[in-house]
Design a protein around this nucleic acid. Structure first.
Lengths: 112, 112
DNA sequence: CTATAATCTGTCGAGAGACGACATGTCGAA
DNA sequence: TTCGACATGTCGTCTCTCGACAGATTATAG
């Protein structure tokens, strides 16, 4: 009655955010969401209810920080960017994800 | 203080079980868990707290059913096997998973 | 001037999947 | 008779994601 599959594969949102910030340098939450949707060709949809908690999470991990600024549309926004620690973490997170998916892929292929 | 990352990538357990039953034909829960661990080279560990709820879930979906039997070690066990519906579902689930991971992979590769 | 839409940041409760710990029991071997 | 492996299952907790809502601000259309 009330739960679809996640629009974003479970557990990958942090990775998507980190990778986007690595590429774009600095973005505010709303633009980050739009950017992820755009780059994925609208295949990955994400709600505010996901993006802001994720940003808080990443900030608590110390991988991103934010500063107040003004958006291109003249609104007061929080610009998020990778910290030193976060920049180091990106390849680690990518490696973890690839390792996990490769494991499953190998499993599915095995015994075939 | 009390939660590690899942040993099995989130959302893949159903798939691992279905695929294993497809290959093995029929197994009881305990053997299924051991089999998954073994085929993955002990990389995928899974506890009873995961396997049995998953089996109930799959049964409710109508993809597997079970019959009582006696194990090779002479215990009363429930042998699980794919239903017709479940047999059809395996390639669907695999396709869904591959689609999702390909999407993320493409995203990570984009803008590089 | 005022209404409305778009932008932007958050919070809340609910649902799903996985986990460790525990409860319960059986069987074979020491 | 005790112990360890086998086997099924439940419970409470955690994390991640979601939709819905709340609350602002700004530009634009009427």
């Amino acid at each position: 009655m009330s739960k679809d599959k996640p629009e974003v594969p479970y557990g990958t949102l942090d990775l998507l955010i980190l990778r986007t910030l690595e590429t774009m340098g600095s973005l505010h939450g709303y633009a980050l969401a739009r950017r992820i949707e755009q780059v994925s060709g609208e295949s990955l949809q994400l709600s505010q209810g996901s993006i802001y908690p994720a940003l808080i999470r990443l900030q608590q991990e110390g991988w991103i920080d934010c500063t107040w600024g003004v958006s291109e549309t003249n609104r007061k926004v929080k610009f998020y960017a990778l910290t030193e620690s976060g920049r180091k973490q990106v390849p680690v997170e990518i490696a973890n994800w690839e390792k996990a998916t490769a494991l499953v892929a190998r499993f599915l292929g095995a015994t075939s």
